[in-house]
Design a protein around this nucleic acid. Sequence first.
DNA 1: TGTAAATAACTGACCAGTCAGTTAGTATAA
DNA 2: TTATACTAACTGACTGGTCAGTTATTTACA
Lengths: 209, 209
Amino acid sequence: MPGKQQRRPDDRPDEILDAATRVFAHMGFTAARMDDVAAQAGLSKGALYLYFKSKDALLDAVVTRYSDTVAAQLMDTLVQRARTDPVAAIEFLLEQGIAVATDPETTLVPRLVMSEAPRSPEIAALYRTKLLDTFEEAMAFVLNEGVRQGVFRQVRAASLMRALMGPILSHVLLTHVFTIPGSAALSPQVYLEDLKSILLDGLHLGEAA
Amino acid sequence: MPGKQQRRPDDRPDEILDAATRVFAHMGFTAARMDDVAAQAGLSKGALYLYFKSKDALLDAVVTRYSDTVAAQLMDTLVQRARTDPVAAIEFLLEQGIAVATDPETTLVPRLVMSEAPRSPEIAALYRTKLLDTFEEAMAFVLNEGVRQGVFRQVRAASLMRALMGPILSHVLLTHVFTIPGSAALSPQVYLEDLKSILLDGLHLGEAA
DNA sequence: TGTAAATAACTGACCAGTCAGTTAGTATAA
DNA sequence: TTATACTAACTGACTGGTCAGTTATTTACA
């Protein structure tokens, strides 16, 4: 019944991390069993311990792989755009964030981290230093460019980060966690439009287009 | 060593819920033991089962008590304010949200729900229907008043809810979950000021004060 | 004294981590 | 080429400990 066993030591670590990401995010780290991860990865439980020395180490590796990848990718493009057009950089960030929110798979790790961080200072610190701090730096850069080029008002980077991340975070939560099966979801296009308008021009009735 | 045992059946349920809230939020629902909850409530484990029929039922009760209380309280004041001054209602909401974010105890249940909802559709639905839906209704009311009185532009209530809740949510997370012990926190006053300015007047350099 | 409230010892299911044994793949040599 | 010896990947049964829920017993108080 189980496919013939194979020996593919090079592919295993990533496959195990993929499996662990799904299983941990789905069932929660504590409730997830190593047998579940093994089954998902098409491996026996014992083999898991050839590649990762404990369940905790596996969680660590999942978060590290994700954080490093995303931090490198997203931040590069963000800084690059900000140099020529800070407004476009902000809009790009919102577009990406909302696009990502549409795909459940992509939000697996952030949701897992939000679940586990409260009881694991180690995971919280990992995510903070590897991803959030980098993100705040990038926001500071975009903001400074905008102010320098005369298109943004002066606010603190930490505030801007929260004001931008937050609405995307709440959208992810309402879309993937607090969804009621029957209810109509807020369309990404519509939300993006509203969000750009609120964040860039404000809620006040003004003279902007 | 243990204080003399007492029989106070009227006070127990609330005391147990208080204890469970703290313990669940701190350790996570799955990892928390019923013995921990009992100890925190100053009771034996067996006694817990006189008041709640299972661990799940206890979690349910924790979330229900919180949601009902907050939904009733906050929404009343919000709707009342919006009638006379919609801008003040929004500012009040942000002030309250940020004030609450300062006190770890008050954010215990929302953080617990965020942790458990991904793996418990039941809890997610409870929180959604008892609290989030009510909140969205209140936002729709505030918004309509603002538009009617000519102080707000027209956006969707669902979008506004996400744009307001989100920045508070991210502030709570960065303050209580992803804090690095040594690092300087963003002061509530400063953040509130920035946030009002971004959400009401927009990030764009405009003609507003 | 009677009974509801509370306790603490107990049970059974569950699971992380281990390890003795099995199998796939590779090197050696006839 | 094919038999033989060897190594490293992999398996799954097992163990020690944990914990939700139960129950026999004790305690508080009307």
